[in-house]
Nucleic acid binder design. Structure first.
Lengths: 110, 110
DNA sequence: TTGACATGCAAGACGTTACTTGCATATTAT
DNA sequence: ATAATATGCAAGTAACGTCTTGCATGTCAA
C-alpha cells in the first residue's frame, strides 16, 4: 500500500530554501496554481517549475490539471517518513520513549 | 541557552548519503576516530574529513582531540529541531494532536 | 478566429559540490 | 632520534544544481 521512496531524492528536495518556501506556501494555502506560487518567489516561472518538479519527484507535492492551469497540493507523508526512519532513531533515550508512545497511540487510530 | 542554527546548513548537511551514513555510523558507535570512520566509506580520508567538517558546521557532530587522534560524537539535537520546526508543522491534524501530546509530555520532564 | 493567458520543453551560463592528489604537521612508540 | 601513525591544509577537476532565455503548446474569452 505505502510505496517505498528514495531517501536521497527526499533529502535533496528539502535541501533548497526555495523548495522549502514552496512547501510553506502550500502549507499555508493548498491547491495553488503555478503562477500563484511564482508571485512569492524571486525567480522566473521556469525556475519555480523546476523546483516543483523536484518536489513532485520526492512525492511532496501532487498536481492536478484544471483546464489551462495546474493546481499544486502538499503531501506531508514523506516528511513523516523522514521523522520515523531518520529522526526518531537518533533521539535521545528520554525522547525516544515518548516517540514510541506517540507511534503506539497512532496505530490505535486515536 | 539553545543556540539558533541556520536551517539551510542543516538540511544541506543531511542532503548527502555519505554524510547520512556517517551519522549512522556514529549512532551505532560513538566516539570514533577519523580513520575508523574512513574504513566504512569508499573514498579517501580527505573526502571523509570534508564531510565531517560539514556535519560539524551543522552542529550534528562534535569532536574532541585525544593525542594524535580525533574523536567524533553525534549530536542529535539539530535533528529534533528539524522535527519541531519542519515536520511537526506539516503533519496531518490527526497526527498533529499526538505530536502536541508528545511535546507536552516532554515539557513535564517525564 | 483571434488574442490573452497558463503552462511545457530544452539548451546554455555559472556557481557549487564532492572528490582527488600531493605535501605538511603533530603525536606516539622503539 | 627515527619511523610509523593520525590528522591537517590546499589546489585542481569533474559533475551537479540552480537559474536563465527563447520558443512551443494548450486553453479560454470575446
Amino acid at each position: 500500500m505505502t510505496e517505498r521512496h528514495d531517501p536521497d531524492v527526499l533529502f535533496k528536495a528539502l535541501a533548497d530554501p526555495s523548495r522549502r518556501k514552496l512547501l510553506d506556501l502550500l502549507h499555508a494555502h493548498d491547491g495553488r496554481t503555478l503562477n500563484d506560487l511564482c508571485e512569492h518567489l524571486d525567480m522566473t516561472r521556469q525556475g519555480v517549475t523546476q523546483h516543483l518538479d523536484l518536489l513532485e519527484a520526492a512525492n511532496l507535492v501532487a498536481t492536478v490539471r484544471r483546464g489551462r492551469e495546474k493546481l499544486h497540493f502538499l503531501n506531508p507523508v514523506p516528511l513523516q517518513e523522514i521523522y520515523e526512519r531518520w529522526i526518531a532513531k537518533f533521539e535521545k533515550p528520554r525522547l525516544k520513549a515518548l516517540g514510541d508512545l506517540k507511534r503506539r497511540l497512532e496505530k490505535t487510530n486515536v
